[in-house]
Nucleic acid binder design. Structure first.
Lengths: 219, 219, 219, 219
DNA sequence: GATGAATGAGATTTCATTCAT
DNA sequence: CATGAATGAAATCTCATTCAT
């Protein structure tokens, strides 16, 4: 299964998603919860059916395979995660000349933290399967990295021009920023499984990033 | 199964390890390789047996259960990971008054990078299962965090006294350092799966840490 | 697993029994026949599946474990064995003042012999596993003894008052009657495996019991 | 495997039994204890080896197969059980014209109760496997019944001639006596698992037998 | 659409037995 | 004699998937 197959599956999934039945919704909810807790491989379709209050056959009527059920959860999440992440923010950046990198970073963090808190279990499913299954990692990771770095690159270029970021290759700064953000999200929401991130902790992290790649614009 | 049960298993494992057979060794090797690539849940004991060139029964003769085979891989790794991590380094720190935090950090990083490169697949197995299985995460994570933070705390306290680290609560600095290091190792060796870490990348990371928590001792 | 667990299993078993499938019935039949002949431990689920003309998975779909299949056979039998044994008979005893102990004993014997002949194989399974597995013996025996002796006690007390039974402690007479009956059933239907019990043999046994604990009411 | 094969095995067993090693003895002891508790089918040779403190291979060096180990336990027991049972007693009966049937029965019971108490676990193994395995039951039961009834017949004939037993066919009396005794032993020592039999209980049983088949010699 | 009984391929596990040392 | 590592056949059990209703 290659990326284009996956994209076909996305298409399928989305086509069906308008007419999503009550039962379909319950299946997805149950699957998310179970996959987040025990991982895809350790969850049986029988369990999901029981949790969702449907017959096992119903899952296969709607999703065809267990694998497809997983993708129906992960792919919309991926598609939502990066686009929303920066498009709106970038609009603002371009509009408002007085917006500093620090403010943008804070917006971005707040925005993504809220997004993940709203989709906490799906995020866990996504990260777990990404880390766990070589196959999925090879297929999804490049796509995610690509999408995220496209957006980060635009932001970095803009602020580098405004003299707010250090004068290193954009790709390097993007990598630093990307792995730092990923590390922050994964450690808090998947490994440590915290219920929320305090203002304080967020500020520390922001300062930490600024120390790493920022420079006072007066230079 | 709680932590003391696991520690018992460590004991058992270690007891048996003197008389380790050639076949036992091959089983463990095959298991590490397979678990690292496809994850524990997606690897069958039949595959492992085939790869190791032994009968399937042999695996169960020696390890009892598949789960136990996993623990026989992970637990010695955990026990080696944190102790060796800083004990020797700490000796040096105490002996040599001229050793800077930067140098210690560099030593530590080099040392642990080499350790992980030497045990790359086991590290992958460890991280994957930690992230994947709630049960294992709840049992092992506290132990690992505790061991690591004990060691980091001693180092941080020492350099804080020498004025090389910012004046924040030790626990906070330890958390920052711990999650940064973990993020660095996991992103490089598990997610991106790089073959090595360049001097340059390491230096950047060190600077990044120093910007975050260091301060010039002249202050 | 204790008695209350077993009783839960009874409940489950009975709940499911309305919607019993054709295949489920065939599995139970095959299992009874095989267990009766060769014993539970010497019968594989593969054999049962073959005999029942179903896939092996079907057994586990319905009964979960092989052990549970055994209990699904034994427990309803136990529940039927003692209740029906004397409740109806006791009714008659109370109604008809002219009914002698001898007649009641004959009724009881005939009734239970027919019950066992109707459930011959299940009786064999029950006795074999009771004798064979310590665990089952410890769990089921007290329950069976208790149920049987409750019923015997009522009958004995009634006829002792009417002067037809010797003047010994009821519990002693109950024990004698219980072990004699059990010995009679087990020796004939399990060990000697006779196809039927002749009128003559039954009469001998009755006389034998009467000689042991009866006395002419004229005393 | 038919009876003559078994007898060959007896021969083998007995041949080896002179030179019984310490280890052999321990194996047999462990096997008896385990078979008595959990049954032959539920006991693994690995367990026996562990309990006996020997290597698993040692069991097979001495006994060839697990089945053979079982027979090495059961067959000497069978051979001891019936012969000793009545031969000596019968001698006395013939010598002493004043010995009553009641006294002989009491001697016999005491003698066999003590024999079983001395070999309690082996008796359990014997009964369990006799009841459990159709194959064994078909092979051993006729032999045991034959041996026992030969001896009982001689006693019964003698006392019938002396007018102490009812005037029914010897075979019938033998069957009654045999099943009563078997029922007594099995219910007490296997099912109820009592530690001892009181004088009182024994006397009751004797009276019960006498009521069933005895008659006052004055007739 | 929905059900849930049935399947069969494959996973884990057990275990009597063999054999080189 | 004794060991215990190794085996492989068979046992129990799991589970995604199909299909008749």
């Amino acid at each position: 299964m290659n990326l284009s197959n996956i994209l076909n599956k996305i298409a399928e999934t989305l086509k069906k998603s308008d007419k999503q039945t009550e039962k379909q919704r319950k299946i997805v909810e149950a699957a998310i919860s179970a996959f987040a807790e025990k991982g895809y491989s350790n969850t049986s379709t029988a369990e999901i059916a029981k949790m969702a209050g449907v017959a096992e056959g119903t899952i296969f009527k709607h999703f065809g395979t267990k694998e497809n059920l997983l993708l129906s959860i992960i792919i919309p999440f991926i598609k939502d995660f990066s686009p929303q992440m920066a498009d709106e923010i970038f609009e603002e950046v371009m509009k408002d000349e007085n917006l500093t990198f620090e403010k943008v970073l804070r917006n971005l963090l707040e925005n993504r933290i809220n997004f993940i808190l709203d989709n906490r279990e799906i995020f866990m499913v996504f990260i777990k399967e990404m880390v766990y299954k070589e196959e999925l990692r090879n297929e999804l990771l490049p796509h995610v990295i690509n999408e995220v770095s496209k957006r980060l690159t635009r932001v970095i270029e803009t602020f580098q021009k405004r003299g707010e970021l250090i004068d290193k290759p954009v790709s390097e700064i993007a990598k630093f920023l990307g792995t730092s953000l990923a590390g922050f999200f994964i450690s808090r929401f998947v490994v440590l499984n915290v219920p929320a991130v305090s203002e304080e902790e967020m500020e520390e992290f922001i300062q930490f990033i600024l120390n790493g790649i920022g420079q006072s614009s007066s230079h």
